[in-house]
């Protein structure tokens, strides 16, 4: 067993265990915290694959941004003594079936793919300079246009959020 395999095993175990805990926990902030672990472990997985940039973005956006936002909103809305109600069997079974079906499809799709044994040396692919250059490149496979479109979308979303928040006040 190589260290990489060991780390992979640890990360996968963390992801699986905390994913299950996230959906089964009946305290909402605990669920959010477990979600944080899942996302951090996913970030670790990216580090393992040497997708350093993606890993850092995963940590910043998901772990540092979205989970903080979720926790923050829970802080504002819920009380410590509150627990979610236990879902009844009628709802667990269909939910479980849907989840299992989704998992089956995903696993089946993944298994169809033949994984090369060697890890691609891939310094070219994950190099931060290449990512940066293609992000602002206007040529083929350049992301300048999507980048700008997204920023306009985000700006619109921000303006919308401000207007919504302002309306509620008066």
């Amino acid at each position: 067993m190589t260290p990489n395999q060991l780390m992979f095993a640890i990360f996968s175990a963390v992801i699986i265990v905390f994913s299950i805990l996230t959906v089964t926990s009946r305290r909402i902030l605990r669920a959010a915290t477990f979600l944080l672990f899942v996302l951090v472990a996913t970030g670790g997985m990216y580090f393992l694959l040497r997708f350093n940039f993606l890993a850092a973005i995963q940590l910043t956006l998901y772990a540092g941004g979205i989970v903080v936002l979720i926790i923050f909103s829970i802080l504002l809305t819920s009380h410590i003594a509150e627990k979610l109600e236990k879902p009844d069997l009628k709802k667990i079974i269909p939910a479980f079936l849907v989840a299992a079906g989704g998992a089956l499809i995903t696993i089946a799709t993944i298994l169809q793919h033949k994984f090369p044994v060697e890890i691609a040396s891939g310094s070219e692919r994950t190099n931060i300079r290449v990512i940066a250059k293609s992000l602002i490149s206007t040529e083929k496979f350049g992301y300048a246009l999507p980048f700008e479109v997204i920023s306009i979308l985000l700006l619109a979303a921000m303006v919308g959020a401000i207007i919504l928040a302002k309306k509620r006040k008066d």
Partner: peptide, 14 residues
């Protein structure tokens, strides 16, 4: 890391 600064920002936000 080749993303050292970004990594530190990311981790310290946790």
């Amino acid at each position: 890391f080749d993303i050292g600064v970004l990594y530190v920002i990311a981790v310290s936000s946790l």
